[in-house]
């Protein structure tokens, strides 16, 4: 059973008004459990509309012809909506704005409490979630989340989602607004979550350098349509498509192109800095032989 199965998904905002917008058009998508999917697309392409279907935040408009199944559950069924939301953890943009409780521990416990778990289980999950996001329980659990730094707040917000132990973790621009070191820490954390907590990760990002090295698969949306569903290497190798849908190449691919133009023999599937440095180093050594 696939983690996510989307069939013929269409979505129209403000149907029948002058502001009508066809945000999703005939999307068919299957995501296997265990994958790390990067969702890319220009602003307004339909990425957010798509991911909000995954936990029933947006209802299916045409149940007759389209369907969204998550872990075998029909996302349009009210009866399983709660279970669906427990299984799909959503980390929205600037999740720290959603912190609300007077202590870090209470904030993280909110989700597990709604799941009606025992007190012992809730406490254990709060402690474990803090450990996973790299915060010290003894130092931080009883503090107000509002006294923490920006990076710490974001960790607490993510801990609140992973304390529910979702099988699928969806993150929308999780590093926006963080300083460079904070970004790096959160990206490393997401990698760790994929390995240890939530087998399936869906990451929405505008940063092609991040997506290229983290995701094992890219889903590209343009003007509401699914225009690519492949590995990062295959996706970025299609330079024309990337350009046409208004996206950037990873920096390593841009420099690769500049060098290829000068006649340096490099492959179009280089997407990371390390790959490019290694390929250039091999060429250099070859030149000295």
């Amino acid at each position: 059973m696939a983690a996510i199965e989307i069939k013929n998904l269409n979505f129209v905002y403000s149907a029948g008004t002058p502001f009508e917008k066809h945000a999703l058009k005939d999307i068919n998508l299957t995501i296997e459990e265990g994958s790390f999917v990067g969702v890319v697309g220009a602003t307004g392409s339909g990425k957010s509309t798509l991911i909000q279907h995954l936990n029933g935040l947006i209802k299916l408009q045409d149940k007759k012809h389209s369907s969204v199944f998550v872990n075998g559950m029909d996302a349009s069924k009210r009866a399983t909506l709660k279970k669906l939301r427990f299984e799909v953890g959503m980390v929205f943009q600037y999740p720290e704005y959603q912190l609300f409780a007077d202590t870090v521990a209470k904030d993280i416990a909110f989700g597990p409490k709604n799941m009606k778990l025992s007190k012992e289980e809730i406490d254990a999950r709060v402690a474990r979630a803090l450990e996973v996001v790299g915060l010290d329980y003894d130092k931080i659990a009883s503090r107000s989340p509002f006294d923490l730094s920006g990076g710490e707040k974001r960790r607490v917000a993510i801990a609140g989602v992973i304390a529910m132990q979702p099988k699928i973790l969806v993150l929308d621009e999780p590093v926006a607004g963080l300083d460079p070191i904070g970004r790096e820490e959160i990206l490393a954390l997401i990698k760790k979550l994929h390995e240890e907590v939530s087998p399936t990760v869906i990451l929405v990002s505008h940063n092609m350098d991040d997506i290229a090295v983290l995701a094992d698969r890219i889903v590209a949306i343009s003007d509401g349509r699914l225009v690519a569903d492949c590995s990062p290497k295959e996706f970025f190798a299609d330079r024309q498509l990337v350009k046409d849908i208004g996206l950037d190449l990873p920096m390593a691919a841009r420099i690769t192109d500049a060098l290829v133009q000068k006649g340096v023999p490099l492959s179009a599937d280089i997407v990371s800095l390390t790959e490019l440095a290694d390929a250039l180093s091999a060429l250099k050594e070859g030149a000295h032989v």
């Binding site: 460079p180 904070g182 920096m251 420099i255 800095l273 440095a277 250039l280 180093s281 250099k284």
Partner: peptide, 29 residues
């Protein structure tokens, strides 16, 4: 809390692999 910009990270990775890299901030070109 800062890091080198990506283009300088690449320059550094190349310097580690025996390239001679200028110390100034190069742009991609």
């Amino acid at each position: 809390g800062l890091k080198l910009p990506p283009v300088m990270q690449l320059a550094k990775a190349l310097a580690d692999r025996g390239f001679e890299m200028p110390s100034s901030v190069p742009d991609e070109e």
